[in-house]
């Protein structure tokens, strides 16, 4: 009987149920409902921004891979640059000029990701690095938000959107004064700072049931996507729970003691980028904590910092700063939250 020979390989012999590319693809799928809602309430700008940011991100990614002598197809195919681009695009005003994406992706992909060693080695969340750089550098541009469908008198169509994004000026007869509007968080912050009462501020048409009009619906769809990711085990539950939980726990007593100066806790949750941040941004594994307890601490930190910035800081929303600050703390948290090894 002649011997039959077989290929060998190390155990386990079963293929992995999930790959990096698979994880990233799931994240992109889970964002789709939120993106659709965004486009419904604020017009096609978001779609253009996503395409722009993706193109820049992939361009920078390819260039950096080439420079670093890494295989292009393998790493471009992991979708991580795309996730960075899409998350960034979801945070900026829909009519922001094209170079905003260019600058942000330059910082995100080249600086925050590749100069730190590429996928798996970045200390900071690339999308948030890009966002914070443009937020600090171009505050005026970054606060030109549109009013949501329902209260907008005129909303720019696709053609006007393209003109606005690529030329930086609005085509006649639109004007920034006519179409731009502060976000609900902005309105709330300036209102409180001007000494007005929360219930009084909240009668403005821009507010919805909990958060901002339109915003809360977008948040609902992000929430749905986030739950899908939880169900698929792409993200772990600790971070979103801790972010949302800490915001609730801290804002509830404030609201109960002083409802005139503090919004309902649910408003905090359903406005701004909190849900998006809790499920999609703070859950970035690379720049976050890895142990279960570490993730709880990480999420709680993000929630607390966000609230503090919303309340006392110079920016209406603080999730990006919360994530970046906690990124810095992550290695330390990881060191002190190691699980106890079996039998010790």
């Amino acid at each position: 009987m002649s011997a039959r020979r077989f290929s060998t390989g190390p155990a386990p012999h079963l293929p992995a149920p999930l790959t990096v590319a698979g994880v990233m693809r799931q994240v992109l799928y889970a964002l789709l409902p939120g993106i659709a809602a965004h486009a419904w309430f604020f017009g096609p700008g978001i779609l253009v921004q996503i395409l722009l940011a993706s193109a820049f991100a992939l361009g920078f990614e390819a260039a950096m891979l080439k420079l670093r002598g890494k295989p292009l197809a393998k790493f471009l195919g992991d979708y991580s640059a795309l996730v960075t681009a899409v998350l960034f695009a979801l945070c900026i005003p829909p009519l922001a000029p094209w170079w905003i994406s260019l600058i942000a992706m330059l910082f995100a992909i080249v600086l925050a990701k590749h100069l730190y060693g590429g996928l798996g080695h970045n200390v900071f969340n690339p999308a948030m690095v890009g966002y914070v750089v443009v937020l600090i550098s171009f505050p005026a541009v970054m606060t030109q938000w549109l009013p949501p469908r329902g209260i907008a008198e005129v909303s720019p169509g696709l053609q006007q959107t393209l003109v606005a994004i690529f030329s930086g000026t609005l085509p006649a007869p639109l004007s920034w004064d006519a179409i731009s509007q502060a976000t609900p968080l902005d309105t709330l912050k300036t209102g409180i700072e001007a000494g007005r009462m929360v219930p009084e501020i909240r009668v403005a048409p821009i507010f919805g049931d909990f958060g901002g009009l339109g915003w809360e619906w977008i948040a609902n769809w992000y929430l749905l996507g986030g739950l899908y990711l939880l169900y698929r085990r792409v993200i772990s539950w600790q971070v979103p729970l801790a972010v949302i939980g800490s915001v609730l726990v801290l804002s509830l007593p404030a609201y109960l003691f002083d409802p005139a100066n503090n919004p309902v806790p649910l408003q905090h949750i359903f406005s701004g980028a909190l849900i998006l941040g809790a499920f999609f941004i703070a859950t970035d594994p690379v720049s976050g904590c890895t142990s279960a307890r570490g993730r709880l601490l990480f999420g709680a930190g993000v929630g607390v910092i966000t609230l503090v910035i919303r309340r006392w800081g110079g920016y209406p929303d603080g999730i990006a700063f919360g994530v970046l600050l906690m990124n810095m703390a992550a290695p330390l948290i990881d060191r002190y939250t190691r699980p106890r090894v079996y039998g010790t």
């Binding site: 390989g9 386990p12 012999h13 079963l14 293929p15 999930l18 798996g120 594994p285 142990s291 279960a292």
Partner: peptide, 19 residues
């Protein structure tokens, strides 16, 4: 059924292994 020849990526610190 078999693990394909390893196309190894860098660790993304997802923590699944520890879980």
């Amino acid at each position: 059924q078999v693990t394909p020849p390893q196309d190894e990526m860098p660790c993304i610190r997802c923590g699944e292994c520890a879980r």
